[in-house]
Design a protein around this nucleic acid. Structure first.
Length: 800
RNA sequence: GCCGGUGUGAUGGAAUUGGCAGACGUGCUGGACUCAAAAUCCAGUGGUAGCGAUACCGUGUCGGUUCGACCCCGACCACCGGCACCA
């Protein structure tokens, strides 16, 4: 058959769409399977081939599952709120709504051209009213549950985007959107209390099937540490200075305290502090430093002694000085530490610079040279002296602290509460009203959605004020509680809000009574397999697991973990081996590839180009191999019925079915396709193929190159759509050959391969091996000291 | 610094997890077809030596375990990803 992709691909895409071939059926009695891929942000540039690779993995899995008789939900949608669209709107004067609609249209047509088997009846758009009303609804639920709060705090602020960023969005001290340096700024902003779920998020990881590195990254991000909170008295005021430490066993070695420059104790005692001006000046310098500068100067410790306040060690009664330094962060622990310079590198560097005492309390180091962080016998520590096990000394110290009421065991997490706001236009409005009498008042649920008003000017105000603040008709409102004049919140939600629950909406996308019907949720959840990018494991994944766990606690979803399994694909790099980007001019447009090679070649190539989980550079000439492969499949029709059926082809076919079936489950598409190519080589060698064999091959190919498969299926008179035909079964007995090739080694070195019956016994194998002409020269005149026989694989003769 | 990962021909990558290293694809070389090119088909293609059968060497480096190591263990080197003054 001539392989005319340009005519067959649109033809089958239309038939699939007309017949609703890939619609998921709620409550169907077939077993359900929910496969999820990360929905795209519809940017103006359109999709690039990286998107195609990201979706092709579970596309193949979904198609295989359908053929295996599952009721498959494989949805797609658009995560359309976000800054790039808004920035584009500012530049061009086009409204973000119009820009978004255009981009979605473009993405949709690109996706359809590739022939993905998405359920197009369930498409969602996070910026649509009947979607974001439920985003707001969940926010209100969180508000009522006490998980939403406002706080004046040091926040990550991007001066270029004029927007407050969450911790997750400013990883590495760079703005996630424009990559400029993030600065610290004091501002009153919205937070979601994700830290309340830190332990649950950590525990939940134990029962899900995530890639090990995905799991590890989340564990690190949550960053649990166990230690103790200890109260130090301030001699002059009688106040308590509370610190967190992981090493309460070194309490006798504390020679000074360090508190964060922003620690509230300073302002509370301005009159008692002798050098408050110097402290203020230091604090100011720190605030101006970018995150980058703060971490660049790691070696050089800075700080100022707090004159007029002295801390008292609760176990030794010793009086010790207090310093402020920016190596202690207000955002972790209590913003104050006990410094043990003998056993902590940072404390040691600080002590050396400021001339503070260094008292060793664990044997093993040399305080002249540096801090000793290893284990050893406890010394200089009163009742702990002589203990050699860290666990024991920590336990003993904790017991003592508890008994005295000056400390107790505690847990800390690196994860911080989620700064949940953007001072921009293109996002979900936060459904809260500020009333002069009643304070913060949530909108009643019935008033949702709180619509995003139309505006002319999307520019954010100087100092990070939302564009919504400039619209009196939006801002001025009545208090839902007392009916008096009030003002609306003008911040919008961050980009990650809509994507935190989108997988739930696919289950019931048109429901206007609830975010999704409870029975439908019960039928479809959890997501059986979720695939996406590594860049989302510490943001989107954590956020959405948090929302889901909250909804579970509220009784709104039937399971506590949303994703049963999570994998990740690797990037497609440009032909130059660099990451694809517009500025480098190395982006490959899938439309161009479809035009020249067809969707089936594109699909096959993105899966064949390398290990699915690793990055691999685009290589057009390598793609030609996939084109040849599909052409050779199309040409198989010429061989059908020619000559006598070949036993070799039959064996090779059944082995291939087995391998392809197994490889798909492990995302090893490259070897699955290689196996099919190999099968083709065998068939062309044999020059013959039966009708039945051809039918199996077509179905085996279908998940990868469905258009060609449908065309061939039709040509052999297959019933219905190939996409819904039965997945090929292999016959185990046919995959086992009657005789096998066995390697013969002498002293571990390969000397020959011999052909043996498949069920050959040890004696027979050894005899055949020893008699082989290629083996004889290596054993003649020597003693065989050991004979190894690995059935079906190898003979190894050890000679002396 | 900490955590995770990777290292294999000219090249993208395979290797049933300790059992024939280099599957499959690309590229390259030679040949067929063609006036010619493209496409297609056939043969070859890790290195060294040899006309040859064959021999020796070969999975980042060095060492170890084993009848046998790309695979396991120890030390080191290089690169990639994540976190990072986290107390």
């Amino acid at each position: 058959m001539k392989y005319d992709f340009a005519s067959i691909e649109p033809k089958w895409q239309k038939i699939w769409e007309d017949e609703g071939a890939f619609r998921a059926k709620d409550f169907d009695e077939k077993p359900k399977y929910y496969a999820l891929v990360e929905f795209p942000y519809p940017s103006g540039a359109g999709m690039h081939v990286g998107h195609i690779k990201a979706y092709s993995g579970l596309e193949v899995v979904s198609r295989k599952r359908r053929m295996q008789g599952y009721n498959v939900l494989f949805p797609i949608g658009f995560d359309a709120y976000g800054l790039p669209t808004e920035n584009y709107a500012i530049k061009t004067g086009m409204h973000p709504r119009i820009v978004t609609d255009k981009n979605i249209e473009k993405f949709t047509s690109q996706l359809k051209r590739v022939g993905f088997s998405f359920d197009w009846s369930r498409v969602i758009d996070t910026t649509e009213e009947n979607y974001y009303r439920w985003t707001q609804w969940i926010f209100l639920k969180m508000f009522h549950a006490g998980l939403v709060f406002r706080d004046n705090a040091l926040v990550n602020y991007c001066p270029k985007c004029k927007v407050v960023l969450s911790n997750e969005d400013s990883q590495g001290g760079k703005c996630d959107i424009c990559h400029s340096d993030v600065v610290q700024k004091s501002k009153t902003v919205w937070y979601l209390r994700i830290t309340k779920y830190a332990e649950k998020l950590l525990e939940g990881l134990e029962k899900v099937d995530y890639l090990p590195n995905v799991k590890q990254q989340q564990v690190n991000w949550i960053g649990k540490s166990t230690g103790a909170f200890v109260n130090f008295k301030i001699k002059e005021t009688g106040e308590t200075l509370r610190i967190y430490t992981t090493r309460p066993d070194t309490l006798f070695g504390v020679t000074f305290m360090v508190i964060a420059p922003e620690h509230p104790m300073l302002d509370a005692n301005r009159d008692k502090i002798g050098n408050i001006e110097a402290l203020d000046a230091y604090k100011e310098i720190c605030a101006k430093k970018t995150e980058f500068e703060r971490t660049q100067l790691v070696k050089e410790k800075t700080g100022v002694k707090v004159e007029g306040l002295t801390a008292v060690n609760p176990v030794s009664g010793k009086e010790i000085p207090i310093f402020i330094s920016d190596y202690v962060m207000m955002g972790y622990g209590t913003g104050a530490i006990m410094a043990v310079p003998a056993h902590d590198e940072r404390d040691y560097a600080f002590a050396k610079k400021f001339g503070v005492d260094i008292i060793p309390v664990i044997k093993g180091g040399d305080i002249e040279k540096g801090a000793y962080t290893g284990d050893g016998e406890v010394i200089n520590s009163d009742f702990l002296n002589g203990l050699t096990n860290k666990k024991d000394s920590i336990a003993k110290m904790l017991a003592y602290l508890e008994e005295k009421g000056v400390g107790k065991a505690g847990v800390q997490y690196k994860m911080k509460d989620w700064a949940f706001n953007r001072q921009r236009y293109w996002g979900e409005p936060i459904p809260i009203v500020h009333c002069p009498k009643c304070g913060m008042v949530p909108l009643p649920y019935e008033e949702l959605p709180l619509r995003l008003p139309k505006v002319e000017n999307f520019e954010p105000g100087e100092g990070g004020e939302s564009p919504l603040a400039k619209i009196p008709s939006f801002v001025n409102c009545k208090c839902p509680k007392c009916g008096g004049d009030a003002k609306r919140e003008t911040d919008t939600m961050p980009q990650w809000a809509g994507s935190s629950w989108y997988f739930l909406r696919y289950i019931d996308p048109h429901n206007d009574k609830a975010f999704a019907d409870a029975e439908k949720l019960k039928y479809w959840l959890p997501v059986d397999w979720y695939n996406g990018g590594m860049e989302h494991v510490t943001r989107h994944m954590i956020y959405s697991r948090f929302w889901h766990k909250f909804l579970y606690d509220e009784g709104d979803v039937p399971c506590d973990e949303p994703y049963a399994k999570r994998t990740a694909q690797g990037l497609i790099l440009g032909p130059d081996g660099e990451k694809m980007s517009k500025s480098k001019g190395n982006v490959v447009d899938p439309n161009d590839v479809v035009d020249e090679y067809g969707a089936d070649v594109l699909r096959t190539y993105v899966l064949f180009m390398g290990d699915y989980a690793s990055a691999a550079p685009w290589n057009e000439s390598s793609m030609k191999g996939c084109k040849r492969f599909l052409e050779r499949v199309a040409d198989l029709s010429d061989l059908v019925g020619k000559g006598a059926p070949s036993e070799k082809v039959e064996a090779s076919l059944h082995k291939t079915i087995k391998k392809v079936s197994a490889d798909i489950e492990e995302l090893k598409f490259n070897t699955a396709i290689a196996a099919m190519m190999s099968l083709l080589n065998d068939i062309y060698d044999a020059g013959t193929l039966t009708n039945e064999q051809f039918s199996l091959i077509i179905r085996l190919l279908c998940p990868f190159a469905p258009h060609l498969a449908e065309e061939l299926w039709q040509s052999i008179g297959g019933k219905g759509l190939c996409s819904l035909a039965a997945w090929p079964e292999y016959d185990e007995s046919k995959t086992v050959a009657s005789h096998i090739e066995v390697a013969v080694q002498v002293n571990g070195k390969l000397r020959a391969t011999i052909s043996l019956p498949a069920n050959c016994e040890k004696d027979e194998a050894l005899d055949t091996a020893k008699a082989d002409a290629r083996v004889l020269p290596f054993i003649e005149g020597k003693t065989i000291v050991k004979e190894i026989w690995v059935p079906g694989k190898i003979v190894n003769l050890v000679v002396k």
